[in-house]
């Protein structure tokens, strides 16, 4: 239907292909590095064809520090998501029904808070955690993750919740359900998909988080992004190992990310753009 000069069509195709390469080649390079031997990794000119070796993966998974980091990342991310859901899901439910300035100000407030650079919050947490013995604890990290995950989940769920007809909650009210019963018996079963998507996205953000983990962990609760930086610091030339660890961190984030990509906008921008 669209009439487009041939020249421009060619231009668009070219751009698309160049961009595709720009995205994929670096990723592929990292992937290939993770299965190259050390010798091949530093070969000059770079070797496009080589004998793959999974030695780096073996080393990574043989490293107790890395295994602990996997455990820590799982604990912190899962804990952060669970706690965030507990706080954010009822809030999103409330915002489905609350009218007037309270709703508006709450949504705006949590959006602004999310936009503030993390470094602003970090200094007081550093001081406070040192005093309160929360430094280098799982719960300490989980708590700071609430700062970004609670707003994220509220923002993601609000538009999805709006799609559930108001009549349903009114019918439930007539049928004798309290707001809490309505939430549990009517809304939650209908929001399953949305809540799952929000959980996944929140999990990815927790899984990827670096700054808070860098400062608020020491030895015990080092998460994967920090563990990988430690590889860099202590084993500066072990690029195969670093690449393998990177692939391990990235893969679940990408796989799960694809599942929830259509929900991303409202979560990231709080619906400042109509989606």
């Amino acid at each position: 239907m669209r009439v487009r000069p041939r020249r421009i069509t060619a231009g668009l195709y070219t751009f698309a292909i160049v961009w595709g390469l720009f995205i994929l080649v670096p990723f592929a390079w990292l992937a290939s590095l993770s299965i190259k031997s050390r010798l091949d990794a530093f070969a000059d000119p770079p070797k496009l064809f080589f004998t793959p070796t999974f030695a780096a993966y073996g080393e990574v998974f043989g490293d107790p520090a890395f295994l602990r980091a996997i455990g820590n990342s799982l604990i912190v991310s899962t804990g952060a998501v669970a706690l965030s859901l507990l706080i954010a899901v009822p809030a999103a439910y409330a915002l489905r029904h609350i009218v007037g300035p309270l709703r508006h100000h709450t949504l705006l407030g949590i959006l602004l808070i999310r936009m503030v650079p993390g470094m602003v919050y970090l200094l007081p947490y550093f001081v406070f955690y040192n005093k309160a013995h929360l430094m280098d604890t799982h719960i300490g990290l989980i708590i700071v993750h609430l700062i970004f995950n609670v707003p994220l989940i509220i923002w993601m769920l609000t538009p999805i919740w709006a799609a559930i007809p108001h009549d349903l909650s009114e019918a439930a009210r007539i049928d004798g359900a309290t707001p809490f019963q309505t939430l549990v018996m009517v809304d939650l079963p209908l929001m399953k998909g949305g809540i799952l998507a929000a959980s996944i996205l929140a999990f990815i953000f927790s899984w990827n988080e670096f700054l808070f983990a860098l400062i608020l962990s020491r030895r015990e609760v080092v998460t994967l992004p920090v563990a990988i930086v430690n590889f860099l610091a202590f084993e500066g030339t072990e690029w195969g190992k670093i690449a393998a660890a990177s692939m391990f961190i990235v893969t679940p984030a990408i796989v799960f990310g694809f599942l929830v990509r259509r929900y991303m906008i409202s979560g990231l921008t709080g619906g400042a753009v109509k989606g």
Binding site: I23, W207, F210, P225, I228, I249, V250, A253, R261
Partner: peptide, 11 residues
């Protein structure tokens, strides 16, 4: 095109 969005910034 969306792949980088899910990349941990550190990676």
């Amino acid at each position: 095109f969306i792949i980088p969005m899910f990349f941990p910034p550190i990676v």
